[in-house]
């Protein structure tokens, strides 16, 4: 038979123990409920973005600083996936800059999102402006 003091102590501890058990269950990573925020949807144009950025990076080698700076601005706006690497550089730097206008135009032609299409088309025009200013187009 429990003394009065012991009975009171058990009465107080029992709900705490039950509560602790519930908390333990909630913290179990295996039984954790799904997060309330759903994962961000995959951008259907991400492949187009990443392939374009790889070409832009590939055009940097040997190019004057003005082109490299313009490319940085374009890449930042395009928001590529992490770890995108430069496509292999081919030909002279001038040829790569000219080819980049075609790359951006083609990418704008295959993108689905109107905002991305606008961004790529405007980037192509920016590249064309710089080429024109240097007498290359």
């Amino acid at each position: 038979m429990l003394s009065r003091r012991t009975a009171v102590a058990v009465a107080v501890v029992a709900p705490m123990a039950a509560s602790a058990c519930s908390a333990s269950e909630m913290l179990d990573p295996v039984k954790a409920p799904p997060p309330s925020t759903p994962p961000a949807p995959t951008n259907p144009d991400q492949n187009v973005i990443d392939a374009t950025v790889a070409e832009i990076l590939g055009a940097d080698e040997g190019a004057p600083a003005a082109f490299v700076h313009l490319h940085r601005v374009h890449i930042e706006a395009l928001a590529p996936s992490e770890g995108v690497t430069a496509a292999p550089a081919q030909g002279r730097w001038q040829e790569r800059q000219l080819a980049l206008v075609t790359t951006l135009t083609t990418a704008a032609g295959s993108a689905a999102d109107p905002q991305l299409i606008t961004l790529l088309a405007s980037a192509a025009a920016g590249q064309q402006q710089l080429l024109h200013g240097r007498g290359l187009a």
Binding site: T105, A108, G109, A124, G126, Q128, L131, H132
Partner: peptide, 13 residues
Amino acid sequence: RTLLIQLLCRAAA
């Protein structure tokens, strides 16, 4: 779309 981008590039130049 390709034609419009080409003409856009010319206008920008």
